[in-house]
Design a binder for these strands. Structure first.
Lengths: 314, 314
DNA sequence: GCACAATCTGCTCATCTGAGCAAGCACCCC
DNA sequence: GGGGTGCTTGCTCAGATGAGCAGATTGTGC
């Protein structure tokens, strides 16, 4: 578009968008036909002279969502625009996840949830009465070795309460020290029934952790920093429902995995609704692993993460 | 607009503006009628959920312009949006003034110009061939006591050259030391004819200076800092074509004014096209004086100045 | 509980707008 | 100069849209 056309386009855009004149009037005013006015407006929008923005905390990036769906064969994707303030990213994503959950159709009768800071936020932001009579099941062992004890349970309970339903907890350690102990525990009737309930949930909601010193597993004492370093050395990018995966979405350390209580990755992969919530730049790698390996059917994330996933040169 | 309506509006806006669906389609998708969709869009625009911006260096603020015209009874007003960079303000305003000048109809046969940094910029940015055969006349005495000598002439000459016309200069001091000298000079045939030419110009283009130590008059030696301080004490807010005025647009110091060479303020007030160019926060006060006292019929300025003028609680 | 006002809703209709098309035009290569 | 080739222009026409209206709904004060 050359200089003078551009100037004309600006003039046209002003009269049309700011003065609310019709294309006809603008044309008459500037001595051009209304078709030319229409075309100039189209170009002005394309070129970026005219920018139309939707400014709202709950706004989404539908174009990016479509790309994600197509690229990774997802059932759905929710992408929230990046707020000006970094601090705002995770609340926005959590809010979006809460909104999404409340809008899932058919309404999930039972919901399998993992736990963590992200999910906790989702639970907090969920609208009271988001559904009626939901059965919430914890799908992986909860933290119980340290002070934050109870957060895992809290998340599930909050989601259940707000959905006028009830929560079924899995109040056992996330990772056990001996494979035998784990097997023994899983044979326990109570535990087994919770596992069964979890396995048959009509939807799953979970997040992912980054493999690093700040991992909840280190924080809560299940793993040492050295353990995590080793996992990273073996290619771990993060954990999903307590299980560490590499960039291909494969279990990194089968021995460790054998000691981990909770739903298996294959069960997630087979699920109808596996809603994955991730926010923040640190989680780009895990997010990519999850998405490319088909661990989720729905992703809820922020724009930066979405772009990181799409920029892949695959 | 309550929470849920707002959310709906966002959803509607996204589908309509980002996904380019028709209002009908959006309605079908969200289970509402197309009229409701239309109304939600209107509201979303009003409330600011949807913002339509025109991003271009030559863009203008037509709504503000209208307010200025109505409020001060101006024939016309040009307001440019504030660029992100403060440095950019005066070039933008100058560009707008140049554009405006080139577009004035009927085309001015003779143009009276003052001088200064602003006008110099306008001259530089004026498009070559902006008109044909214009007669440019300097309307107030030029700087001639210091190194910047010649800028005043330069401005007029540039404007004339680019308009394929010729410039008539007023190569005498802006302010003389004795009233008698001033009177004598004005009686000079050559000078008188220039003054007459200036008085009969079909349009005027000028700016204003701020009364302060940084004034061109101090800079060029016509006045001392003490002189200016005294003027300020008497209520001066700035100068227009070399004449210091107070906030009411009245001459502050008649004795000084008597020694000032050039067009009189009343001649400006009576002019058909008196185009006043001002940019920058420092000039809000002078701008207000000029505009409220009817010294100009057209103002070209930046958004901040325009708002300052309008915010007046009059 | 009732009447009134204010708002909201779905509608008709006139107007506005974009898709698609054929003619017009500039540019380019021979 | 001739004959493409690709872009621009003005047009038709169908579909999209907003103004204005009457009935429905909600809220409010008595």
């Amino acid at each position: 578009m050359d200089e003078s056309t551009e100037l004309l386009a600006v003039r046209v855009a002003e009269l049309y968008y700011e003065e609310n004149k019709t294309q006809d009037e603008v044309g008459a005013l500037l001595g051009i036909t209304r078709w030319k006015v229409g075309r100039l407006l189209t170009r002005a929008r394309e070129v970026g002279i005219v920018r139309i923005e939707i400014i709202h905390p709950r706004a989404r990036r539908l174009d990016v969502e479509r790309q994600l769906r197509e690229r990774f064969g997802l059932k759905d994707a929710v992408v929230v625009p990046l707020p000006a303030d970094d601090e705002e990213v995770s609340p926005r994503v959590a809010q979006a996840a809460a909104d999404y959950l409340a809008a899932v159709r058919p309404v999930p009768r039972s919901l399998g949830v993992s736990w963590g800071r992200t999910l906790d936020e989702v639970a907090r932001l969920l609208a009271p009465g988001w559904t009626v009579g939901v059965q919430v099941v914890q799908i992986n062992g909860g933290v119980s070795l340290n002070s934050k004890q109870g957060t895992a349970a809290q998340t599930a309970v909050t989601i259940a309460q707000k959905g006028h339903g009830q929560a079924t907890l899995l109040p056992i350690p996330a990772i056990l020290e001996q494979v035998e102990t784990k097997r023994a525990i899983e044979r326990d009737r109570a535990v087994a029934s919770v596992r069964a309930l979890g396995a048959s949930a009509s939807a799953y909601l979970y997040s992912a952790g980054v493999a690093g010193a700040s991992s909840v597993h280190v924080d809560s004492g299940y793993l040492t920093e050295a353990d995590v370093d080793e996992l990273v050395a073996k290619g771990a990018v993060g954990d999903v429902v307590g299980r560490y995966i590499d960039s291909a979405g494969e279990i990194v350390d089968t021995a460790l995995d054998e000691r981990t209580v909770g739903i298996g990755l294959d069960e997630l992969r087979a699920a109808e609704h596996a809603i994955f919530v991730v926010a923040g730049d640190a989680k780009h790698d895990v997010a990519r692993a999850v998405v490319t390996s088909g661990l989720c059917s729905v992703i809820v994330t922020d724009e930066a993460t979405a772009h990181a996933l799409l920029e892949e040169t695959t």
